[in-house]
Write a protein that binds this DNA or RNA. Structure first.
Lengths: 193, 193
DNA sequence: GGGTTATGTGGAGACTGCCTCCGTATAGTG
DNA sequence: CACTATACGGAGGCAGTCTCCACATAACCC
């Protein structure tokens, strides 16, 4: 759980951990836009301390997310083990969307991280896109994925749908039905190109 | 162009118009999250005046959007005239996304308006959903739209994709390719249900 | 233990944006 | 011209982000 910062003083390490824990709590309760002052307060720490450890909101999000990433990787491994390439891709996309629902509003900073690779989220973001590409490629080879579908586009569409479902949770829309549209389209007939 | 407020004093009417014009400018340049203080400043008006005419950011957005709505309705009519139901649906969805790109970040308040119908945007939002339903129903009857696709889901997916494309404009992703995925899915084979 | 110093701490305060309130200005009317 | 309903504007309260630096303290050495 502790992401073992290199060589911090004991109190610094302790504070860092407290902040992280408080951040997870606040982000879970109030979404990704939770007040950082509140996070500091909940951690029993001054604002300066928070900003020294995590210079930007994105950095804090990235760190708070690190834990859930293990689960995502585990689910990716499970999906990879599926014999059916199409099912594997679908399972991966579902896991990805679950992950993006870790905190309310998460898709926004993740998408933002695509563009500026200096973002602390950029790494995991690229990794997610790469894995999407891996599953998509396999589904093109072994399954029924269209050759014309590109990784970036599918990833973007997935992010967009995760965002929309996340925000419209109240009105009764199911992730499943929306994703069914993404998988098979709103049109009935196939016919590539 | 002037949305003819009922019976305002001359200076009030003039100021309202200036604010609206300034809002369009700021929203166009800086997106939907532009500072309202800047809008007031650009309009040469105090903050109080701005808030009296437009009590919330959403109200201002709704008013600033009113102009573009005419174009959207015109495009809807053009789409409705298309003989092919599938093409009509696709054209409508494309127009809708164009409209959602009027201002950077517009999909967010529009989606938010779905949930709270007291929002000034709720009306146009419901109208857009209703029109999507109209085109979808026709495509189900006359074209190749799947019976299992529901209006709310398609509308939501469209919003999500508009959001994602809007935000990822920099990296080279085309609306066309993403929408192709939405239309025909990432899988090759048909087979309803 | 006591002294020294590199490493951290916290909160005051500068800044920005949202929004309200009310003393003042002015358009419209007779 | 006087009078009043209507509208104006900006000061000020609030909340949030982020920085800066006087002060604390962990770690190291004797």
């Amino acid at each position: 759980m502790t992401d073992a910062p290199p060589d911090l003083r004991a109190d610094a390490r302790r504070n860092r951990e407290r902040i992280l824990q408080a951040a997870v709590g606040q982000f879970t309760r109030h979404g990704i836009d939770a007040s950082l002052e509140d996070v500091a307060r909940a951690a029993g720490v001054g604002a300066g301390t928070l900003y020294r450890h995590f210079p930007s909101r994105e950095a804090l999000i990235a760190a708070a997310l690190r834990q859930g990433q293990d689960r995502l990787l585990a689910e990716a491994a499970r999906a990879r083990a599926l014999p059916d390439a199409d099912a594997a891709l679908a399972a991966w996309l579902a896991s990805l969307q679950d992950y993006l629902r870790t905190f309310h509003g998460l898709p926004a900073p993740v998408l933002a991280a695509i563009e500026q690779q200096d973002s602390p989220l950029a790494l995991s973001c690229e990794a997610m896109a790469a894995m999407t590409g891996e599953f998509l490629d396999r589904a093109k080879r072994e399954g029924h994925a269209r050759a014309s579908v590109e990784t970036a586009d599918l990833f973007l569409a997935t992010l967009g749908i995760a965002w929309a479902v996340d925000r419209a949770a109240a009105c009764g829309t199911s992730t499943g039905r929306v994703n069914a549209i993404l998988a098979r389209g709103y049109l009935r007939d196939g016919g590539d190109r």
